[in-house]
Computed example of a mutant assay.
Amino acid sequence: MQKVLLSLLTVLFLSTSFYKIESNKEKQTPEILKTNPQNLIPKASFKNSAAVAEEIYNSISFTDMSTLKSEVFSKAYLGFENLKKEGKLNQDSNLLTICDFSLSSSEKRLWVIDVAEKKVLYNSLVAHGKNTGEEFAQNFSNTESSYQSSLGFYITEGSYNGSNGYSLKLIGMDNGYNDAAFQRAIVMHGADYVSENFIKSQKRLGRSWGCPAVPRELAKPIINTIKDKNCLFIYYPDEQYLSTSKWLKVDQNS
């Protein structure tokens, strides 16, 4: 009788022990299933905007053209990505136009870049406003009739034929810096005073009423390339602008 009881106790012990093991496995399984596979990859392994910008910049060939400063490209690319995140640009947008107004107006200081192909499509002269400066840009404004250029990021709209010929509408995206551009009729257009001949005769490029004017012969091809919701960035090392523009804020969670 004792042997029978001992056998029954042994069977009962083994069966309950097995049940506890299985129960523990069942409790662990949901936690594993809930785990997001992406969380298994450290955030540090994802490239941030600065790293991507550096990679693209280092792949671009500036042979036989003006060299865009890496720090200017990095800022332009950061804003370009932030505009995408806000839905201001299409996710598949890959054209970034940069005007570096810290350079002499006698230099080709406009670049149209295909960031996907990592190449410069156009490198051109570009004028600043007559009250922004002579050879060098110095003063910027968002005010009507100031005849000054406006800093910041723009979204390109459609093209049209106006008093300056084939032109491109621009929407300023920086509050207080260029958001009055549309009302001021700040557009991209061609101009005869944006030429090497004008530089030779006047020792500087001609100036606009605030528009980023380009050579007459390049106006149509550049405008047709960048129109319809692409990004234009007009840069100048203005510390107030660079520290306050929402498009130049680094997302620490990205």
Rank of each mutant, 00 (worst) to 15 (best):
S7D: 12
S7A: 15
L9E: 03
F13P: 04
L14G: 15
S15Q: 06
Y19Q: 06
I21F: 08
E22L: 15
E22R: 14
S23I: 06
N24P: 01
E26R: 09
E26I: 07
N36M: 00
L40P: 03
I41V: 15
P42I: 14
K43I: 06
S45K: 13
F46T: 03
F46C: 02
K47T: 06
K47R: 14
A51I: 08
V52D: 02
Y57P: 12
Y57G: 08
Y57S: 04
S59H: 07
M65A: 10
S66F: 07
T67N: 10
T67H: 08
L68E: 12
K69D: 00
K69H: 03
K69W: 00
E71P: 04
F73K: 01
K75C: 02
Y77S: 00
Y77G: 00
L78V: 02
L78R: 02
L83M: 15
L83D: 02
K84N: 13
E86M: 13
L89T: 07
N90V: 04
S93L: 01
S93A: 15
T97P: 10
D100R: 02
L103N: 09
S104H: 01
S105D: 11
R109F: 08
V112I: 09
V115C: 03
A116K: 15
K118H: 11
V120N: 13
N123V: 08
L125I: 09
N131M: 10
N139C: 05
N139Y: 07
N142K: 05
N142L: 14
S146C: 08
Y147T: 02
L151Q: 12
